[in-house]
Design a protein around this nucleic acid. Structure first.
Lengths: 330, 330
DNA sequence: CTGTTAGCGCTTTCAG
DNA sequence: CTGAAAGCGCTAACAG
């Protein structure tokens, strides 16, 4: 059970009877090494099981052949994006490093700074809000906040999706429809609220201020907001939540309160994460093609790095997916 | 669109009029710095938006407060584990770095070597086959190959699950039940085959060698094996696949061949990845509690790092989840 | 073709 | 309390 010491370049050099520089050249396939030496060193590398140290070589400032996927947390939404990004990276010759910086403010800057100038050659960043163009490495953003300096971006049609969701509820006869908003720093979240308001407006249904809440996409905040909503004298008959995690949490709260979903309360979400099919009842939601979005972002990043020109913004369509969490108002 | 140069320790030092050593102490909260200096430097750090460079500090050989989750690929199975691991790490003060080393042989050694001695303080490794205890940092394995030097391990009851799956098919009247195996280097894969054989044996149904195939958990290999199986003169009426991805692929192949699932062919999988509920028909499968397994592994790793004693092996239960991909033989 | 050398950004003795 | 200096493992000039 010996602590296997890491074998380093110097160990290989010593064993092979050459200098570290030569070993480095062999490792990196640089030329300027005699065929014989090359083969001998390669053999020693094999024997010793030498593997480069990422930190060291990245510090020296060379390409690492590693791409980053930077997220605040590994939750269902980002996990789907990650699957898609990984699929797109497969066969590209790049390894993937996914980093969760924690949900503290400014995690995206922190992540990119800590990994950027060194560890990774480029990154896909999920829902960044404080990041501007001009960072150290090429970056593609998924569902960011739009600043004046837009990053290359992938997002989905949040407005259209929200309109569709709201119209669906309206079509079921609902009038007291609550909106459980997301993080207002994100354009997508604002567009979902805008879509909700637009659809309500078109239907001539006034929006009751008391029914518009904010969850910051946090299930716990969502739970307490929903508890308040459902305690209202005139409580909503439907809730449109700006993402699935909070929608699912809303259904749980309703159940705890003895309300039947969808009998007493219809709930509709946004995203279509895998959990939406597994909840009880299964969640009617607006689908974003998350895996495809992740793949599109990665492929855009690959193009950027290779210097290929690309349309800097791709917007994906959203679809209303009908499941079991909505019913006609009664 | 200026390329924002990375601000480094030296920049802060220059701006604050102190030495890099002092800044380093402030950054790391070491003491031996006058309160006034500390505050001044802290202010400059804030102003400049300084963020440490992971590579550099890790290279110097200190704790990074980063934990790794090492996988071959980010596919549905590992993504679920990752979600669970992330949930368990939340609030622990550690950041997470998930690395996909690519499916080349020995990826786990490569990953651990490249990140291990430096970037990360510990790791959860998913389905490692060549890794032994005694690596540079604490490691917990999920579903590994058991060697004599067992790593601390999380796995699920593959044998029991396989027995349940096979008995289910037997109970539906199937006799020609094919087994689509996984990677035989993994104990779990071998145990699934053993469970299949045991259940067949108990039922007195001989196992036809032609019906036992190997997919290495690769959907493409699975597809071609299934095509062969279904071309057999006496083709199987049911397939038990050792994981869900290959089971889903098997259903697709059957459809392409004009066979109805479950009418003409019953299919049962293993894992219960989210995709199992989304396939058509939805997949009957043996559920492993993947997110819980990821969480258990992470919590074990945290304990290991903190020096807390732990049972070195946790085995989770599996459950048969009935969906729509199996029917009585006709 | 091969080896020597100078750092990459950071932390940590060890003097001042 | 503060700073100068040594090095972590590696790569890239530059000499030999």
């Amino acid at each position: 059970m010996e602590q296997t010491a890491r074998v380093k370049l110097a160990d290989v050099a010593a064993r092979a009877g050459v200098s570290v520089a030569t070993v480095s050249k062999v490792v990196n396939g640089r030329d300027g090494v005699a065929k014989e030496t090359f083969e001998h060193v390669a053999q020693v590398i094999e024997d010793l099981g030498y593997m480069g140290n990422l930190s060291a070589s990245s510090l020296r400032g060379v390409r690492t052949n590693v791409l980053g996927v930077l997220v605040a947390e590994f939750e269902p939404y980002s996990a789907e994006l990650l699957k898609g990004a990984a699929a797109a990276a497969r066969g590209s010759g790049y390894e993937l490093l996914a980093h969760s910086g924690g949900s503290t403010d400014g995690w995206e800057r922190r992540s990119i700074a800590r990994l950027g100038g060194a560890l990774i050659d480029g990154a896909v960043i999920v829902t960044p809000t404080v990041l501007e163009a001009g960072s150290v490495v090429p970056v593609v953003a998924i569902d960011p906040h739009y600043g004046p300096n837009r990053l290359p971006t992938i997002d989905a049609d949040s407005f259209g999706g929200a309109v569709a969701a709201t119209e669906h509820l309206l079509g079921l006869g609902h009038r007291r429809i609550a909106f459980l908003g997301g993080r207002s720093e994100l354009d997508s979240a604002r567009l979902r609220e805008a879509g909700y308001r637009a659809a309500m407006g078109s239907a001539g249904v006034p929006v009751d201020k008391a029914l518009v809440r904010d969850s910051r996409y946090d299930p716990d905040i969502a739970a307490s907001e929903v508890r308040e909503l459902l305690a209202l004298a005139e409580r909503p008959t439907a809730i449109f939540a700006a993402n699935d995690v909070t929608a699912i949490r809303a259904m749980e709260v309703a159940s705890e309160l003895g309300l039947d979903v969808p009998g007493d309360l219809s709930v509709i979400g946004f995203d279509d994460i895998p959990e939406a099919t597994q909840s009880r009842p299964s969640l009617t939601t607006v689908r974003q093609p998350l895996q495809e979005m992740g793949a599109a972002a990665m492929s855009m990043l690959l193009d950027l790095i290779a210097g290929r020109e690309r349309e800097p913004h791709i917007r994906m369509n959203t679809d209303l997916i009908l499941r079991d969490s909505c019913a006609p108002v009664r």
